[in-house]
Simulated assay, not measured.
Amino acid sequence: MNRTVRLRLPFTGTWLVQNSPARRVPSHGTELLGSSWAIDFVGVDGSGRSAPGRDWRTVLATEPPERFFAFGRAILAPAGGVVVAAHDGEEDHAARRSQLALLPYMLGQPGRLRRGAAALAGNHVVLQLEPGVFVALVHLRCGSIRVAVGDTVAAGRLLAECGNSGNSTQPHVHVQAMDSMDLAVARGLPLRFSSFREWPRRSSGPVDRGSGLPGEGSVVEPF
């Protein structure tokens, strides 16, 4: 049985949980690219909004990534380790909350798959925590990566900023644990997070968790 990888949440502030493996595995509907247990976090404000407002672009078109609270937020190392990959230079593309804008984007998915990891992950950092245990942080902001291959980092070290690069419809950070740094052959590993406060989707108040996997649609913050 695969070991469970224990991590910190890789940020401060409040974030909405999407594609949680607490809901299903594989969490993103595929085991490709080591993503079986991957989880997504979307930065939100105190009211749970991912952006300060909506207008005609929200309904009919794309929106600039700078409009979203997550864009530019600090992304931190979720555990101590060694940087084994640090890819930058992929542009942050427009965000898409509109169903009209999402349709052509989804039709382009096969092409992104053919182009490989950079087209899907965008700007990303991979840490090796120990032999056979790796963690990837994905969809980072172009030009924001602050570490290089070979760096040893402690948990909480600034790695980059949240962006909207790669296969991303609005700014968020994608986190996954896996058994190889090579996404083409990596298998996903189960993960858990320590010391976080969770506002479950159907609850009126927060729950403090020493360890766990946040639920789909909940809001979390580290403590």
Score class of each variant (00 low, 15 high):
residue 93 H to E: 08
residue 197 R to V: 14
residue 177 A to G: 02
residue 20 S to T: 05
residue 101 A to I: 08
residue 88 D to N: 07
residue 61 A to R: 13
residue 135 V to F: 08
residue 183 L to W: 12
residue 38 A to H: 00
residue 60 L to I: 10
residue 28 H to Y: 11
residue 115 R to W: 06
residue 157 R to C: 07
residue 34 G to C: 05
residue 39 I to H: 00
residue 102 L to N: 13
residue 135 V to I: 07
residue 163 G to D: 00
residue 147 V to Y: 06
residue 70 A to F: 03
residue 140 L to F: 06
residue 16 L to I: 06
residue 182 D to S: 09
residue 117 A to R: 13
residue 59 V to A: 12
residue 83 V to N: 04
residue 183 L to P: 12
residue 121 A to F: 15
residue 148 A to W: 08
residue 210 G to P: 06
residue 219 V to H: 08
residue 94 A to G: 08
residue 172 H to A: 04
residue 109 Q to C: 13
residue 140 L to E: 04
residue 16 L to E: 11
residue 90 E to T: 12
residue 173 V to H: 03
residue 182 D to V: 01
residue 143 G to M: 06
residue 205 G to M: 00
residue 71 F to L: 03
residue 139 H to Y: 10
residue 200 P to D: 04
residue 77 A to N: 03
residue 199 W to S: 09
residue 149 V to D: 14
residue 8 R to P: 09
residue 139 H to S: 10
residue 61 A to N: 05
residue 183 L to G: 08
residue 159 L to V: 07
residue 192 R to V: 15
residue 169 T to W: 11
residue 115 R to N: 09
residue 120 L to I: 15
residue 167 N to C: 14
residue 135 V to Q: 05
residue 99 Q to W: 14
residue 56 W to Q: 13
residue 218 S to C: 06
residue 132 G to S: 05
residue 13 G to V: 04
residue 34 G to P: 08
residue 208 D to F: 15
residue 33 L to S: 14
residue 74 A to G: 05
residue 51 A to C: 11
residue 7 L to V: 01
residue 195 S to Y: 13
residue 36 S to A: 14
residue 135 V to R: 06
residue 177 A to M: 06
residue 167 N to D: 15
residue 185 V to M: 10
residue 19 N to E: 14
residue 25 V to M: 04
residue 30 T to Y: 09
residue 169 T to D: 15
residue 6 R to Q: 14
residue 88 D to M: 02
residue 58 T to V: 08
residue 26 P to F: 01
residue 199 W to M: 09
residue 70 A to Q: 00
residue 91 E to R: 10
residue 60 L to Y: 08
residue 101 A to V: 10
residue 113 L to T: 15
residue 43 G to E: 01
residue 156 G to V: 00
residue 185 V to S: 13
residue 197 R to S: 13
residue 65 P to C: 07
residue 110 P to L: 05
residue 155 A to K: 06
residue 164 N to S: 01
residue 218 S to E: 02
residue 102 L to A: 12
residue 107 L to I: 10
residue 115 R to C: 07
residue 78 P to L: 03
residue 58 T to K: 04
residue 76 L to E: 01
residue 60 L to R: 06
residue 16 L to K: 13
residue 101 A to W: 00
residue 195 S to W: 11
residue 95 A to V: 05
residue 206 P to N: 08
residue 209 R to A: 09
residue 124 H to R: 10
residue 41 F to V: 04
residue 125 V to Q: 00
residue 3 R to A: 15
residue 139 H to P: 06
residue 112 R to C: 03
residue 164 N to W: 04
residue 44 V to R: 05
residue 153 V to E: 05
residue 185 V to F: 06
residue 150 G to Y: 02
residue 114 R to I: 15
residue 110 P to D: 04
residue 117 A to C: 12
residue 68 F to P: 01
residue 17 V to S: 10
residue 81 G to H: 00
residue 154 A to D: 10
residue 14 T to S: 12
residue 156 G to Y: 03
residue 218 S to A: 09
residue 114 R to N: 05
residue 99 Q to I: 11
residue 113 L to W: 14
residue 168 S to Q: 05
residue 59 V to E: 14
residue 90 E to L: 08
residue 208 D to H: 11
residue 195 S to I: 11
